[in-house]
């Protein structure tokens, strides 16, 4: 994703748009009327999650040169192991949800865990909203 053609802010913007789409996929999966629909949305979410790490090249966080608006905290780059673990947690929560599609009780539980994984990562690696 960190194409040389993109400025740091463009990388941030693309990342933000991707995160919003990811949220949309989650919601789509949650509200899908059948297992196939849910799985299709989760597949998109998994595909995005696989690109997650590459969407956070060094120099695209709060306070970096050329970044005017971002909420990405320095911990992403100073604690790379924890960041990687957070992405893996999301990935595994998505796979659990995928396997649970069709079984409402299991699917609900999987989404509870999925929500926690979103929140866990945001709490640690995302700063306050920028006006």
């Amino acid at each position: 994703m960190a194409s040389a053609a993109l400025t740091p802010q463009q990388i941030v913007d693309e990342r933000v748009a991707g995160m919003k789409a990811l949220g949309g996929n989650m919601k789509g999966a949650r509200t899908a009327t059948d297992a196939a629909g849910a799985k299709a949305e989760i597949a998109k979410a998994i595909a995005f999650t696989e690109t997650m790490q590459s969407r956070f090249p060094k120099g695209t966080g709060i306070g970096d040169a050329g970044v005017t608006k971002s909420r990405a905290l320095p911990d992403i780059w100073t604690k790379p192991d924890q960041f990687k673990a957070a992405i893996e947690a999301l990935s595994s929560a998505l796979k659990t949800a995928d396997a649970a599609a069709g079984d409402q009780a299991k699917f609900d539980a999987a989404f509870g865990a999925l929500g926690k994984s979103c929140k866990g990562c945001h709490d640690q690696f995302r700063g306050p909203e920028v006006p």
Binding site: G24, G115, K119, D123, P128
Partner: peptide, 16 residues
């Protein structure tokens, strides 16, 4: 209950 918004964003700051 969970702090998770409908778009799977999460509560932050004082609301969290």
């Amino acid at each position: 209950k969970s702090g998770v918004k409908p778009d799977f964003d999460s509560a932050q700051g004082p609301m969290a």
